[in-house]
C-alpha cells in the first residue's frame, strides 16, 4: 500500500524536497491516484508491450559533423558559469 515511506523514496528518485506537511498531502494524493492506476495491474500479460515502429538502418542520419553552437549561446540561460562551464557545488 502507498505510505509515506514510499513517498519519501519516490521524492528521492524524483529529486523533490517536501516539508512533512507537504509529504502527508502528497501521500494522500498519491494513494487516491494509485487506486485508479491499479486498474492496469490485472491486464493480460501475454499481450505484447508497445514499441515504436522500427526504422531502417539506411534511413538513419549519415555520420557527418557540422559546426557546434557558440559556447555563449549554450551557457546563456545558466545562472552560474565559470570558465565557460556550468558550476555546481563540488561533487566527488
Amino acid at each position: 500500500m502507498f505510505n509515506s515511506e514510499l513517498t519519501k523514496h519516490l521524492a528521492e528518485l524524483s529529486k523533490l524536497e517536501f516539508t512533512d506537511e507537504e509529504l502527508d498531502k502528497m501521500t494522500e494524493d498519491m494513494t487516491d491516484i494509485i487506486a485508479i492506476m491499479d486498474k492496469v495491474c490485472g491486464f493480460d500479460t501475454s499481450k505484447p508491450a508497445y514499441a515504436l515502429d522500427a526504422v531502417d538502418y539506411n534511413d538513419l542520419r549519415a555520420d557527418a559533423h557540422t559546426n557546434s553552437y557558440p559556447t555563449d549561446k549554450i551557457t546563456a540561460n545558466a545562472k552560474n558559469v565559470k570558465n565557460n562551464s556550468f558550476v555546481v557545488p563540488k561533487v566527488v
Partner: peptide, 27 residues
C-alpha cells in the same frame, strides 16, 4: 504529482505491474 507518479510506474518492483502493463494496454 506527475513526476512522482511517473517514477512510481518505473521504479524497481513496480515497473512490470504498472509501466509495462500500461504499454500492453496501449498495444
Amino acid at each position: 504529482r506527475r513526476i512522482m507518479l511517473g517514477n512510481y510506474a518505473l521504479c524497481s518492483g513496480y515497473y512490470d505491474a504498472y509501466y509495462k502493463n500500461a504499454t500492453r494496454i496501449r498495444t
